[in-house]
Computed example of a mutant assay.
Amino acid sequence: MDGQKKTYYVSIANGEISQSATSSPWNFKIEATDEEITTLREYFDENYTHELGNFVRAHIPYVEYHHDKDNDAYDIGMQKIYSMIYDLGDKQARNHIESMGILNQPPNP
């Protein structure tokens, strides 16, 4: 793998990372190396695993959202994803993430 940055388009909802701006809808445009894309993909994959755990928890009425480790892990994962997109993104991506305020939240223990 080389350290050359390429343009990618990221969709948060489905965790898709593409080099084509026209193949599917996207939220953020980033410039990243192959290694950075691998890391971002791992973050999306980890969050998908936590989503499955959240689905199961949603069917157990006595487990509250704020007492669920999968929800905490998912939230932390989303902060990692948005932080990485912020670091690699264009000005529009950074402005949008700043407006969300997601990176200003303290991490969960």
Score class of each variant (00 low, 15 high):
E16D: 07
P25A: 09
F55P: 00
E42S: 15
E16G: 04
G15V: 03
P25G: 02
Q79V: 13
M78C: 06
H96F: 15
T49Q: 11
S20L: 14
S83A: 13
D72I: 04
D45P: 00
L52A: 10
K6N: 13
Y82I: 13
D70Q: 05
H59S: 05
I30R: 00
V63F: 04
E36M: 07
K91H: 11
S24P: 00
A58V: 02
H96I: 14
Y74T: 02
E64A: 13
Y9E: 03
G89S: 03
I85P: 00
N27C: 09
G77F: 07
E98Y: 02
N47P: 01
T7C: 02
I97P: 10
T39M: 12
D75N: 05
N95Y: 08
A21R: 08
E46N: 14
S23G: 08
R94A: 12
A93C: 14
Q92S: 15
P61V: 04
I37M: 01
V56M: 04
Q79L: 05
E98W: 00
Q92G: 07
Y8L: 02
A13S: 11
P61F: 05
K69W: 10
F28S: 02
K91R: 13
S11F: 02
I97H: 05
I17M: 06
R94Y: 13
L40D: 10
V63S: 09
K5D: 06
D68E: 11
N27L: 09
S18G: 01
Y86S: 04
N47D: 07
V56P: 00
D87H: 10
K91E: 15
N47L: 10
N14Y: 12
Q92F: 11
S18F: 07
H66L: 12
E64W: 00
E51N: 05
V56R: 06
D34F: 08
D90C: 12
G15A: 07
F44I: 03
V10T: 01
E51V: 01
E31P: 00
E64V: 09
G15K: 01
T39G: 02
R57Y: 05
K29I: 15
N47Q: 12
I12N: 03
Y86I: 10
S18E: 05
H96G: 02
A73T: 00
S11W: 01
S99P: 09
E46V: 05
Y9V: 05
A32K: 14
K69D: 15
A32E: 06
L52E: 14
A58P: 00
Y43D: 13
K5T: 12
A93Y: 10
Q79A: 10
V63M: 08
I12V: 09
E51D: 09
M84I: 03
D90M: 12
E42P: 01
N27M: 13
G53L: 04
Y48H: 09
S11R: 10
S23Y: 09
I17V: 14
D75L: 14
D72N: 11
Y62G: 07
Y43G: 04
E46Y: 08
